[in-house]
Nucleic acid binder design. Structure first.
Length: 318
DNA sequence: AAGCTCACCAACCGCGGTTTC
DNA sequence: GGAAACCGCGGTTGGTGAGCT
């Protein structure tokens, strides 16, 4: 027996969402919170499939989303993470504050892939014997390093519980040299935004997202803790920028941070102290530090990025 | 000005994992 | 334990606008 369609396709509207539909959806979510998407079309009268409602909310209407205007640092971060994780866009997006997986995926497909390709071709032209097969060469010449890399890779799943370090290795949005293009440029979006601002500040945090403050990953207290409730109960004006962005992100983000992926990238960060965790401060993981340092290295590294394998090699300490 | 091509991105589709009954 | 429902994810498509001829 096959899977039934998620909705009655005949009575379902497709195509771009209208501002009116957005308002209906935002109003509903504002009242009932995100989730139980099946009930959304029935309760709102929207002629949309539940899936479409969820997607619209997740990728577009959810508060705290930034769209477009990817910085160079974000570019490099995406490139490195893609080299490490492959096309696991949700995992990659979890490292980019306020970016959606769909946005990251689209950006990769339309910009970064071509950029990398161009760079590789440029390298090919520049050097008659391109540095192909570096990974294999390393493996052949240094079996110990290879073993270590393999061990590290295989130890991912055995990582300790509670390592849900929702690391945001990218800088705070305000730290960027050029202010990224903000979301809700359209009038309808601005309306949605205005409607949500008040709600998001008061909404209970459903998940945990972190933000980088002064080089330290700050994780808001879990929603179930008194701290979170207290934070959520405060007015938005009382929240710090970090708190605000974190709580806004977490309030509606139904997707838990991909723990396994962060464990993957944090395989060497077991040395952070319990007290630091209790205080909500977790040192940057080795990989995050690498990413940040690397990003700080500027264009020099980017130019070297040619073979994506280099990034993976770098991550394994080659 | 009109037609064409291309790039971009919002949205759809289908699959797999998880939860519920 | 198994079926159904639900949800999340990644791949792909199609509409739209910008740029070019």
């Amino acid at each position: 027996m096959g899977r039934p369609p998620c909705c009655d396709k005949e009575s379902v509207k497709k195509g771009p969402w209208t501002p009116e539909e957005d308002l209906v959806l935002v109003s509903y979510v504002q009242e009932h919170g995100p989730g139980n998407w099946r009930a959304v079309p029935a309760n709102t009268g929207l002629l949309r499939c539940s899936k479409s409602c969820r997607l619209r909310w997740t990728n577009y209407l959810r508060p705290g989303i930034r769209r477009g205007g990817f910085s160079d640092q974000e570019d490099r971060l995406i490139v490195h993470l893609q080299a490490l994780l492959g096309n696991r866009w949700a995992a990659i997006a979890s490292y980019l504050p306020d970016r959606t997986d769909n946005d990251v995926k689209n950006y990769w497909n339309t910009h970064l892939k071509k950029k990398l390709l161009a760079q590789q071709q440029q390298q090919l032209r520049a050097s008659p014997s391109p540095p192909k097969g570096q990974w294999e060469l390393k493996l052949q010449t240094d079996i110990n390093l290879a073993r270590r890399a393999l061990r590290d890779a295989l130890s991912i799943d055995a990582g300790p519980p509670g390592m849900a370090v929702a690391g945001s290795a990218a800088p705070a949005p305000s730290a960027g040299p050029a202010a990224p293009q903000q979301a809700y440029a359209l009038t309808a979006r601005s309306v949605d935004r205005m409607m949500l601002d008040g709600w998001a500040a008061a909404a209970p945090a459903a998940g945990r997202r972190s933000c980088v403050v002064g080089g330290t990953v700050v994780i808001p207290a879990p929603a179930t803790t008194p701290g979170a409730a207290e934070s959520a109960s405060r007015s938005s004006s009382e929240l710090t920028t970090a708190e605000c962005s974190a709580s806004i992100s977490s309030a509606s983000d139904q997707r838990a941070a991909p723990v396994a992926d962060h464990q993957l990238l944090a395989s060497e960060e077991n040395n952070y102290t319990a007290s630091a965790v209790q205080q909500g401060e977790v040192p940057l993981s080795a990989i995050e530090s690498w990413l940040l340092e690397d990003a700080g290295a500027g264009e020099q590294k980017l130019a070297h990025d040619g073979p994506l394998l280099d990034a993976a090699l770098h991550s394994f300490g080659f």
